[in-house]
Amino acid sequence: MRVGVVTFPGSLDDVDATRAVRLCGGQPVALWHASDTVSDVDAVILPGGFSYGDYLRGGAIARFSPVMTEIIRLAGLGLPVLGICNGFQVLCEAHLLPGVLTRNAQRTFICRDQTLKVCSTDTVWTNDFSRDEEIEIVVKHGEGNYTADADTIARLNDEDRVVFRYVGNPNGSADDIAGVTNRRGNVVGLMPHPEHNVDPLTSDSTDGRRFFVSVERFLSVAMTA
């Protein structure tokens, strides 16, 4: 499994995502923001950080980078894409996922271990979980307040596209939404950081590993099919 990890100027958790891919048995491939080709990867991760400083709005500039143009095209063809934190913001700005992430309701950055409820397992990145299972994943963000109009939220619920909900909402997100997916289920964005929950030395929970188990299972099935 070759997993591309994009580095934008200001990406921070690219190191962590790369390590997580390796620890979970994959082969990480570094992708540079200025490159307009993405070849020979089975999946892509848009990591956390502050791409281009996020001075306009989280992800608003990264969405126009050359590498994103290609990733948007490949996502449309079914390439598994996982957007974590800033990566989730980029996916929303790129309209691969609906909604927007606004400033946390309490107006401060929050970093803590967070309980999540798994709501949809019908995605490339979450098929190893069980529905309604509770998992522990780190959150750390200043702009993670998921916001969308009522119709969009209703549609997400109807179409089983809310992937995770917070148990104890840390940021004011609508409907406790922590992560969502596209119709096809190949693009998942979430504010929590599964790449920080893969090594028992640095976090009590290793629930993040199952994101990689999920995508690997999907890929092996997709390849045999």
Binding site: D13, R19, A20, T108, F109, I110, C111, R112, K140, T202
Partner: peptide, 14 residues
Amino acid sequence: VTDQYDRFVRGDSV
């Protein structure tokens, strides 16, 4: 105070 600081990034915070 400390919840406003990222203590996880780089993945080596034991």
